[in-house]
Write a protein that binds this DNA or RNA. Structure first.
Lengths: 217, 217
DNA sequence: TAGATTGTTAATCGATTAACAATC
DNA sequence: TAGATTGTTAATCGATTAACAATC
């Protein structure tokens, strides 16, 4: 048995659980707006069409306690989820590649929170450098290196064409970026301590098509 | 033991496997361009940083056979993966909500295949109705019902604001759409036979932030 | 033939589900 | 008090990993 020096505030959630937590959070925010003060796992499960036992288990990772017969306090639960997921911190990020997908993300966050805050966008296309998307200016790519020194940005969003993705990712790492949200199909080869979160659209399509084909026997 | 009438051509892959298959496919296409004729699971594993045993198991769902000492024929494997994933069929789809994210998807598919083909886009905003994004015209939302009768579209892509998502999804179902690729945060309540593939951006962010926080002890 | 790789079967690991005691 | 719900522990289910025989 080992004692890791600093006490863990939260339990470590398995990834499937982690992926469900933002869904609960969105649902709870909707429910709070309707003025609901307490909500139970069975009610959450009914709305989200999932097993109430699993809801209880998932929510337990936040450390929040519910009351038998009553359920959880909506406000407390939202707060605990935001804290657990890190959504209440600023999480500033750079975006590289202000093309279609990139500008969609930039515009998106004006209306709805992503969980991270894009504070600057970079591109090499002189046609879009200097323009603004949402409230963010698109800057010359080379400016990234200079800006990275001043601001202490740890997250990079990669929405470039596939063929430059590896190079840009390496540049991001040199700028001190620790985690890359990769929307390209490129397979990034980076130091082990760098976190790469791949979000390929094909993955979702693959799952959708398969379920569709299976349903048609 | 039951005999299900029609012989299954392929094995049923677990979802984690399914999610990895497009990654193999992308890598193999890159490798084919370089002229590689045969490729083994250990080589794939080394490049994609995953376990060679798992590669073998994953690829086996396609039914393709490799040769000991040699590996798999690149071309055959790509073909089998495309077939298994359904990427070689047209998979025509409607998109509703030609805002930021919607237009990004429309423009995206001009450069790179999504695995599905968006053939029409609909919106209610008179400012964008009549415009073209990529090679697709944005049509008046009400036209969807008429067009759905003529074309036999089974897939709907939902990129509307959250508050209209449920209504649009119901309309899609009434148009005969069987599978919905949902980019909104809305929790859709639809008949059980309708396939809903949720692709929420927050989910990815949640996983990324957690891994980042964990890495910082 | 020797050695590398496939492919299958068994063992392990982890997540989900079920059962039940605690409690409000 | 009775009943509903939490929360924990055990059982099940499924995916990953390991072991090894088959084979080119």
């Amino acid at each position: 048995m080992s004692f890791s020096g600093k006490l863990r505030k939260h339990k470590n959630a398995p990834e499937p659980t982690l992926r469900r937590l933002p869904v609960y959070l969105y649902f709870l925010e909707k429910v709070r707006e309707e003025g609901t003060i307490n909500i139970s796992a069975p009610v959450i499960g009914k709305n989200l069409k999932c097993d109430p036992t699993q809801v209880v288990k998932d929510l337990s990772v936040t450390g929040i306690k519910g009351k038998p017969r009553v359920g959880y306090n909506t406000y407390e639960l939202i707060h605990a989820l935001e804290e657990y997921l890190g959504f209440n911190r600023t999480n500033e990020a750079f975006l590289v590649g202000a093309g279609n997908l990139g500008s969609a993300l930039l515009a998106y966050q004006d209306n709805q929170s992503l969980g991270i805050k894009l504070i600057a966008a970079f591109d090499v296309d002189t046609e879009i450098i200097g323009t603004s998307i949402g409230s963010i200016h698109v800057l010359e790519y080379n400016k990234m290196f200079h800006l990275a020194n001043r601001l202490n940005v740890e997250i990079g969003v990669l929405t470039t064409p596939n063929h430059v993705a590896q190079k840009v990712a390496e540049d991001m790492v040199n700028c001190g970026i620790k985690a890359i949200w990769n929307f390209t199909s490129a397979i990034l080869d980076l130091p082990d301590n760098i976190i790469v979160q791949n979000t390929s659209l094909s993955t979702s399509v693959a799952v959708l098509l398969r379920r569709l084909n299976d349903s048609e026997k």
